[in-house]
Design a protein around this nucleic acid. Sequence first.
DNA 1: CTGAAAGCGCTTACAG
DNA 2: CTGAAAGCGCTTACAG
Lengths: 367, 367
Amino acid sequence: MHYSEDVGVSSSAHIAYCPQGANTDGVITTAKITIRDIATKAGVSTGAVSYALNDKPGVSAQTRARVREIATSLGWSPNLAARSLSGSPVGAIGLVLARPATLLGVEPFYMQFIAGVESVIANEGFTLMLHVVADQACEIQAYEKWWSQTRVDGVLLVDLHDDDPRIEAVERIGLPAVAVTSRREAGGLPVVWTDESAPVSEALRYLVALGHTRIARVSGLRALACTTERDRAFEEAAASCGIEPPRALYTDFSGEDGARATRLLMTESPRPTAIVYGNDIMAVAGLSVAGELGLSVPNDVSLLAWDDSVLCQITQPPLSVMKRDIPALGAMAARALLSTVAGGSVPCQAGPSSRLLPRGSTGVAAD
Amino acid sequence: MHYSEDVGVSSSAHIAYCPQGANTDGVITTAKITIRDIATKAGVSTGAVSYALNDKPGVSAQTRARVREIATSLGWSPNLAARSLSGSPVGAIGLVLARPATLLGVEPFYMQFIAGVESVIANEGFTLMLHVVADQACEIQAYEKWWSQTRVDGVLLVDLHDDDPRIEAVERIGLPAVAVTSRREAGGLPVVWTDESAPVSEALRYLVALGHTRIARVSGLRALACTTERDRAFEEAAASCGIEPPRALYTDFSGEDGARATRLLMTESPRPTAIVYGNDIMAVAGLSVAGELGLSVPNDVSLLAWDDSVLCQITQPPLSVMKRDIPALGAMAARALLSTVAGGSVPCQAGPSSRLLPRGSTGVAAD
DNA sequence: CTGAAAGCGCTTACAG
DNA sequence: CTGAAAGCGCTTACAG
């Protein structure tokens, strides 16, 4: 072995979950055991076992306890196929991602969202079905298939567009769904929405306070509801700050598009003194472009990213960001979906919204 | 609306799939229809319908055709719960990720891998069950639960460690599994392995050719099998190049650890003239540290990242990388698992290995 | 409070 | 080549 050292594992902010923490003993599950086995051992009918195990009336407290004990000792798990055949939920929720995998891989949003979703569904005995598709038509087909095959009990809708066809689709299909978006409503669907007004206002007032008046935006996909919402919010906030609404360039959220947009903006005259980016990857790309053009950040231009990630912390300077608790958003959405699946009526609710976290990429305006 | 432009969507390299392309017509699946409905309409027994739909002998070609036609016209999908209750596969494979979500979010590997997996399983009517956990103990519990609940037909094992307990665990549980690793074997499990020797040799010879002799490595998790394999490969390659084996610092793959390791290396004297990173995020962090220390890349120090991503292309300079086809790796693993689930014996096979893709971060050695 | 029975949608020996 | 029947593991009215 050659010289080596361990830099040490930084165990900060581990958002991962281990719900079934209880039975750590190595239960041998070779032969699958059924409620019939339990019934035989307990000397009762399978019906009684079912009642006991599902907390339903029909058995004495004593029988219930004994049945449960036997079930545990035998290492029994319900066969979900059998359960769902007699009408119970299958214990799975679905998430379809309709963005190119190259982008999905780089946007930390999804994995963090998923981690949040997991943190609540795992405790309820649910699992996550994931599907990556090319477009919304495929996404709708996936929902039809999942539902007709009884694969999921409900789905989470993300990345809502203006006039999103998926809303009508899930309603037509009869598939329980919860929408995660920045709008307050999505057809008749329960919504977990994130406010854009307050954070946009916070961001803009901050930049204005730093002396910026020529502010530009490198925005995301134009069709996205959150883009529309943010556009509106920027217009309102600009009006209340008494400046022109920031000009917006629309992109596909890729670093490539972000770089190109930044180049366009930087080569105008007069050039903007501050740029607000729709995601972190474009902001990082923008920072590179600034370097490429010999511009110093934040001396010559200030950069502000929407949504934080480790990416934003390892650049030089580290990026000022609008940060929100994405795992919490996922958890909230999952909770809403589980209630919906259980038949409860779920009100629209506000998820965590973004807050300004200034780091090194924003400063006093150049001129 | 204010001034706005569209920067244009770069539709390159979209790795996303839409398998059920055939029936785009909006089938109304409100009332779930069963083979009994088909049987009634066709005037045959449900058994005959089952034979017809599953391509099994027992019905005439004529009946088979008619039954199929009716099934299609009715928009029938098999109820997977019912199928699995009578012993068929449930049509799902599982993937458990045991890394902190903060890291998962940033490593593009997983999403690309998943996209590759999807591309083959979706065509076979399978779906992906995803689970994010804290550690391997939780991972094993998830396997036990999935299998005892009949939720998945098999699982894909990634991020193998030296002496990985999961190998023995899935064998004990009886859960079909395929290991994806850089070792050639994993207990009795079918393996899709990626060679490290050739790429390590290619990387090292390239750096040596550029005049580098003081080469250091910022490696990943020490316990990982691929780390061990790469350590060994570097030692061999160094010997055959006639240089000292590159010194390795071990990290948790995070940008933070990558930055710290880079700082340690850069502040030694003499400092290394080239650093090889275990992933892209650490390389990006390393690039920032170089800037922070006033060192020019590649003039003062060359940087080489393992595994490519858009990240590596948007830095300044863009990072030279060791690139491999990760979606293809996922696809190959999925194919192997599907064969295993179907009862076939699957040989160990070599997945795509990394190749050098020099960009701007590597150059002639400083001294 | 408890047991015997039907049924969920499918598959698969088993007779005809 | 075809039909009638049992069974997969569970839930849930229905009698006792």
